[in-house]
Simulated assay, not measured.
Amino acid sequence: MNISSIIDIIDGELQNSPSISFIYNIKTDPKKVIEGDLFLAKNYEEIIIALKNGAFGIVYDFEMEVLDKEIAWIKVFSVDESLVKLFRFKFSTFNLEVYYCDKVTFDLLNIFKYLNKQIKLISSKLYRSTKIIENISEDEIFFSSDEELIKNIYPNYKKFSQKDYKIYNLIEHSLFETSFSYEEKYFQKLKIPSLYINQFLDVYNFFDTDLDFHKLAKFSHFKPIFVDKYLNIIDFGKSNKFIICQKNLDLLVNEISYLEKKYKYGKTIFISPIFIENLKEKQIVLENLDDLKHVIKKENFNAIYIMGYDKIKVEEILRLSLHENTELF
């Protein structure tokens, strides 16, 4: 792509008179830059790495001197907006199949995408998906769970089907494990809550082939962390105490409603960084996740629902050494 075309697309200002006039690919990770790439920089340190790796052009939105007059230095108002504009330009030259789907469906697609190499998932953090625009094909199918983003990139996007499927013989073995019949197939003890059966069937029908249901172990939404009385993590179903984490705020309302409806017989505590109104159960405001074990060690609970914090981080906090655990109690 010509440097002059890029400048027009991203509304940039060329800060020098470079000897190069063409770039090959767009990169946002300085370590992946190779000779001929255009690099979109977040800071000075990234630029130094990109230059060493052979960048032909630098796009940036902060004060920066021209370090190499041979390459193109393009200053913009916002690097993030520039990346959106580059995606929009690339997508506009093709007739593509582009879908918006909810976060649960997006994550299920990610689990089973190995079944169809034409599936391309666009992260809401767009810099993670720049490889997509290196070699776009009209045979590919694009998905995003960020509707505003996909609207900016490809206004002719469609909403991925989320039907209200007719299921039979529903058995909820627990909050986290479900069996049911759909059409001519019986799904036995899937590691997925009944809350997300519709999304699961959307993905199942989309692939139109047998899925390896063991891969649902990677499904992270409403996924329990079972703990013993000392808050040590133990195997699935080996305790009557569990912790659910949900960082995605868009899913909180439905998951909380599901928990309150399906788990009336257990004591639930809600934890969040800020106070949430209208919760029926006890609520704890936790501004620092490192304090989690100290806060809940004396609480009597069956379930803890943690809002706004990542499951992996919560597991790290809980995986203290035996010595640290015994000191807490």
Rank of each mutant, 00 (worst) to 15 (best):
K215M: 13
E172T: 09
K189D: 07
L149G: 10
F226D: 05
E183P: 00
F176H: 05
K218A: 07
Y165F: 15
V227P: 03
E147C: 05
Q162A: 11
F200S: 07
F226I: 03
F207A: 03
E172V: 02
K151P: 00
Q162R: 15
S239H: 10
D210L: 11
P155Q: 13
F160H: 06
K159C: 01
D212L: 04
Q162L: 15
L170E: 10
Y196P: 01
E177K: 13
K218L: 14
Y182P: 06
L190S: 08
K185N: 10
F226S: 01
Q188M: 03
I136M: 12
I225G: 04
I234R: 10
I167F: 12
L195K: 08
E148V: 12
K191P: 00
N156P: 01
D139M: 08
I234T: 11
I234W: 02
I153R: 10
K238S: 12
S144T: 03
F242G: 01
Y165M: 02
K159G: 00
S161E: 14
L201T: 03
F176A: 02
Q199G: 04
I171E: 11
L211T: 06
S145K: 14
F187Q: 07
I167Q: 08
I150G: 12
Y154S: 13
I197T: 13
F200Q: 08
Y186P: 00
F160Y: 12
K215C: 01
E172L: 06
E147N: 11
S137H: 08
K215E: 14
K223F: 06
K238Y: 11
D139A: 02
N135R: 14
L216K: 12
I167Y: 13
F176K: 03
I234Q: 03
E147Y: 11
L195Y: 07
T178L: 09
S144L: 02
L149M: 13
H221Q: 07
Y182L: 05
N232W: 01
Y204T: 03
Y204K: 13
E184N: 14
K238I: 00
T209V: 09
S137G: 09
Y230H: 07
S174A: 06
K151S: 15
F160G: 05
D202I: 00
K191Y: 10
K215I: 04
I243S: 06
K223D: 13
Y157C: 03
F222L: 15
E184D: 15
F187T: 06
K158C: 00
I197W: 10
L170A: 08
D146V: 03
S137Q: 07
D146Y: 06
I171R: 06
L170T: 11
L170Q: 04
N240R: 07
Y204F: 15
S181T: 13
K166E: 14
I234L: 04
F187P: 00
F206A: 04
